[in-house]
């Protein structure tokens, strides 16, 4: 999939653990790791909103588009 979720980097910057974020955002750790590992098919706007609120960032900071050519490199 060409859309990647840049959760790792932001969490590192904010010095926040995945568990802590899950608690703050109010979604399960299982769902959050689905998002982090790129297995998610879709993201709800409510989830995106909560993530941006807790991480104090923009949706553009979270989502990264990579063309498929880059992926095969």
């Amino acid at each position: 999939m060409a859309i990647r979720v840049n959760l790792d980097m932001i969490l590192l910057e904010k010095k926040m653990s995945l568990t802590e974020l899950a608690e703050r955002v109010g979604i399960t750790l299982a769902n959050l790791s689905i998002l982090k590992t790129g297995k998610a098919r879709a993201v709800r706007f409510t989830t995106l909103e909560a993530l941006c609120r807790e991480l104090d960032c923009q949706p553009a900071d979270l989502l990264i588009y990579e063309s498929d050519d880059d992926e095969t490199k």
């Binding site: 979604i27 959050l32 689905i34 998002l35 879709a42 993201v43 709800r44 989830t47």
Partner: peptide
């Protein structure tokens, strides 16, 4: 459909 829904975060 439920499968899709499960992978919606």
């Amino acid at each position: 459909m439920r499968e899709q829904e499960k992978l919606t975060v």
